[in-house]
Design a protein around this nucleic acid. Structure first.
Lengths: 412, 412
DNA sequence: GCAAATAATTCAATGGCTGAACAAATAGCG
DNA sequence: CGCTATTTGTTCAGCCATTGAATTATTTGC
């Protein structure tokens, strides 16, 4: 999803308005204080007359609303501030993970307006049943959203696995899913969202990708290029380049868990040898720390590790240091390749960041050619748990912001 | 450089024509046979009236010319084919490398219209002297181009090293350059190219990046996302994603030579350990093959290797296999991360591809998670030597094609 | 030689932006 | 308290590029 939407085909008179609607709305979304029409005119280069006309359309379409004037010193007629509407279109975020189902609603401004999490071990549950339960949760979410004056205009589902263009989940190893036709299964249920031109009714995507998108749009705005690593049982990465998620040729980018860090090392489920996952995956860390894994559900394993590390447990500290070193080798490679200056540790890694960051930074310092000139930041994710669900919902509303014309055409 | 140029700021009436000029010109450039105005109308979605008007501008500006009608069966007035002009704007490509200087001129259609290579060991030559010699060669090239009816509208210089945004060569290890202010040094000479709005007079970029761009625009058109690896003394990669070169946050992407392939392995010049360069760099292969390196200039070393391998020399074959395996480990990591389906071996690797490809493919097959669903192609570069110079010149004319309005404004 | 077919151009109508003039609303100053 | 300077936002004529239909141009096939 590109933020600046380039018209692919013919550029006609109407495209002009479409592009300027997106331009103005994007400015309003990016501003840190409510801008006036005059501010927008100088920022965009449009005349005040045009901005007024564009804003009128946006107001009529419930995409922005006027707020209290931003305080200003000096003479002159006071400005009317413009903010993203807290009523109007909203995105539905869905997530199926190993040990929970999550649903949330995010409004235009990126605020989470509804959130439900249902904790349960999903591995023994059939995909259709899991999705049915998710739909039920989504129904409640929609009613809540409607009550708040929001209209759901699209949904995105995060899954911990490989998803193809059609929404088919090819493989979600930790969930035990294989070739699950999510769109077909969801089509059996009544529709959850309103159809809006330019916004797909349902997008199915990798959890790591959507978590990275959530990080991209979190406040305060961070860098526009970064690597977001979700460390769970598997290790996935979302690659954000120039403000857009890079999905790869087939949409299967980000499999950082299978970067070889010890080419002749431990065998991996993927068929390769010495994959990062075997050294920095949750199971590997837990085993190295000497914790019996069977007794621990996935989400409490990291909490327990953090607890032990906090208490100074030597085994836990060593396990985390070794995992961080392996992670650092992989990250150093990625940074050498892509020249990123920010790495975000998300998922289970977020809580372990205090112990993982130092060895990761050490590997970067010694292995990255350009580290001397361009320091690399490694930090935990700002979004907490269920980041993928929030990112999923956010990805829907970002589409509205990037192409408001579709929504406006709908609501007349 | 994005092919579809999204207007960053205000979209005014004139932008409309600018965008449609780019749209139509881009179609003409991408077509494999000269399209008629009617073809362009159906392809772009514009009306024939608009296409005629746009084409008139392009004809007046010497960007396209009418060709013999494309053969067509059936009744009706015959179409007039449109092709990119073989007179008009052209790009100047420059390259400084370890053992040669190269200059070339590429026209709108991507044809190389002039080419000069001067072989010499540039390591003992001061940067200012090397650039002065290059300028002299470029002067000859410009005169040749002018004689052919071409106007140079921009230049790009390829350097085997790290270049920052301002054109400062921070480090070119194999050339022995450090903090060389190329634009300042070239400013001392009379200008080589005409100034055109939207086209920088001089771009300095990494050799691997520009070689990748050359590959991107070579005929027949290949994939729009791929990894181009230049294997010389160092190993650099150009990463092309969705038809655009990915430069990274600082412009220092593609340092694949320093991907760790044996984290506890050989020490590398960069300060790291076990970098790919130590296992698949030219010096490493030559040493492993048992060739005395000192006697061989860089460009004959690979030729000699290929010769030996062709003859079945066991040491050479083993050295190439090991290098290919190391390369494969690194490439597998990249493919896992970026989900690319094409890897191009360029530079010194091109000639060694017959022996490098099999082990690279073997590593990909065993290490890439998605290899089973999405086969990865590994092939040698189609451009020969001096690919970077051709890519550099091509990058200039691609700007004209992407934003023709600037050139048209100039030539009135 | 005429009809059918395809290519390209002409021209009034339309939509959206610009620029300048105007209306609205406030602070500062005597 | 009233006047002026200042800034915001709106109105309106003019302009520009696209559209769509009608027109002209040029060939094939009967």
């Amino acid at each position: 999803m590109s933020l600046t939407h380039a018209p692919a085909g013919a550029v006609r008179q109407g495209s002009l308005r479409e592009l300027n609607l997106a331009l103005v709305l994007g400015r309003i979304a990016a501003a840190d204080r409510p801008p006036s029409r005059a501010d927008l005119a100088t920022a965009t280069g449009l005349t005040r007359a045009t901005v007024s006309a564009v804003v009128e359309d946006l107001l009529a379409g419930q995409l922005v609303s006027e707020s209290d004037p931003a305080p200003r010193s000096g003479a002159g007629r006071p400005a009317r501030g413009l903010v993203l509407a807290d009523q109007g279109p909203a995105g539905l975020g869905l997530e199926v993970n190993v040990d929970y189902l999550a649903v949330c609603v995010v409004d235009l401004a990126g605020q989470v307006r509804h959130r439900t999490v249902h904790r349960a071990d999903l591995r023994p549950v059939a995909p259709a049943d899991a999705l049915a339960q998710l739909v039920e949760m989504a129904g409640v979410a929609r009613d809540d959203a409607t009550g708040q004056g929001l209209t759901l205009v699209g949904a995105a589902l995060a899954v911990p696995g490989l998803v193809d263009d059609a929404g088919l989940v090819r493989l979600a190893p930790n969930l035990g899913w294989r070739d699950v036709p999510v769109p077909a299964l969801l089509a059996a249920h009544p529709p959850l969202v309103e159809q809006v031109p330019g916004v797909p009714v349902l997008v199915v995507d990798n959890e790591a990708n959507l978590a990275a998108l959530g990080e991209l749009h979190s406040r305060p705005p961070g860098p526009s290029s970064f690597l977001h690593i979700s460390g769970e049982v598997g290790i996935g990465a979302g690659i954000v380049l120039d403000g857009a998620l890079f999905r790869g040729v087939r949409g299967w980018s980000g499999e950082i868990g299978h970067l070889p860090v010890h080419p002749e090392g431990r065998a991996c489920r993927c068929g390769g040898q010495g994959c990062l996952e075997q050294y920095a995956g949750q199971e590997a860390i837990v085993a190295a720390a000497g914790l019996a894994r069977a007794e621990l559900p996935a989400d409490t394993a990291t909490a327990r590790l953090a607890e032990l590390a906090e208490a100074g447990d030597a085994d836990a500290l060593r396990a985390l240091h070794d995992a961080g070193t392996a992670l650092g080798v992989a990250v150093a490679g990625v940074v050498n390749l892509l020249d990123l200056d920010t790495v975000v540790l998300g998922g289970g890694y977020a809580a372990l960041a205090p112990w993982l960051c130092p060895p990761v930074l050490a590997e970067i310092a010694s292995r990255v050619l350009t580290a001397a000139w361009s320091p690399v930041t490694v930090r935990p994710s700002t979004l907490g748990a269920e980041a993928a669900a929030v990112g999923a919902a956010g990805s829907v509303v970002r589409r509205i912001v990037a192409q408001p014309a579709g929504w406006l055409a709908r609501s007349g």
